[in-house]
Structure formats: structure tokens, C-alpha cells
């Protein structure tokens, strides 16, 4: 388990996430792409904390912040899905030609 190997895994997860976020039409699938990107970012962050930061606790702290970001992203995402569905009956991105409420 070298640092490089973990970083490559993190990059792979991030790349898959980019693909998903850009290619999926369904809102929820799009969010899954975003989640995978954050997932890769957390992995890269923690491996650098574990291997090259000398155990600076602020590295883990940043991980906690990332998880908060993830939770906020999910909440806002689900909220917008619910709101958009109520107003527009839309479940895929193509159905939202204008964003004005």
C-alpha cells in the first residue's frame, strides 16, 4: 500500500465521478457522480495526512470538513430534487430548460 497506489485509486474514483456527473441525465445519478468525486478527494486527503503530514491533526479535521460538505451537498441536492419535482414535475436535467422559478 504505497502512497502512489492510494493516490491512483483516489484519482480513479474522482475520474469515474467526473464521468457520472457530466453524463447522467437523472438528478440522483448526477449526485452520485458528485459523491464519488468527494469520495476520491477524501481518500487522497487522508493518505497524504497518514503518510506525509507527520500526523498533523488538522489533516483529519479537514476530512471532517469534507464530510460536512458531503452531507450539505446531499441535503441541498435532495431538497432541490423535491422542489423541482413539485414545481416542474421534472426528474432529468433535460426537462429544466430555464432555471427561473
Amino acid at each position: 500500500m504505497t502512497t502512489e497506489a492510494v493516490l491512483i485509486v483516489a484519482a480513479a474514483l474522482f475520474g469515474i465521478g467526473v464521468y457520472g456527473a457530466l453524463s447522467q441525465q437523472s438528478f440522483v445519478m448526477l449526485m452520485m457522480g458528485l459523491e464519488l468525486m468527494i469520495n476520491g478527494a477524501i481518500l487522497a486527503l487522508v493518505v497524504l495526512w497518514a503518510r506525509s503530514a507527520g500526523g498533523n491533526p488538522q489533516g483529519q479535521m479537514l476530512g471532517v470538513v469534507f464530510m460536512t460538505v458531503m452531507a450539505v451537498e446531499m441535503t441541498i441536492g435532495f431538497t432541490l430534487i423535491t422542489g423541482v419535482y413539485r414545481v416542474r414535475r421534472a426528474d432529468i436535467t433535460e426537462k429544466l430548460r430555464r432555471l427561473k422559478g
Binding site: 502512489e4 483516489a10 484519482a11 475520474g15 467526473v18
Partner: peptide, 30 residues
């Protein structure tokens, strides 16, 4: 936009993996 998305994903992977391979990280374990 399947092709563009796949391309972007591959570019992101290659760029980030490149950083991981090329970058010099100090060895200070936790």
C-alpha cells in the same frame, strides 16, 4: 454528452494520477 463526459473523466484521472506519481511527498507517517 457521453463521449465528452468519458473524455473529461479520463483526463481528470490521468492528470490526478500523474500528480500522484510524479509528485514528491515527504515521508512523515502519522
Amino acid at each position: 454528452q457521453n463521449r465528452i463526459a468519458a473524455g473529461a473523466g479520463i483526463v481528470a484521472f490521468v492528470a490526478l494520477a500523474g500528480v500522484g506519481l510524479v509528485g514528491q511527498f515527504p515521508d512523515r507517517p502519522a
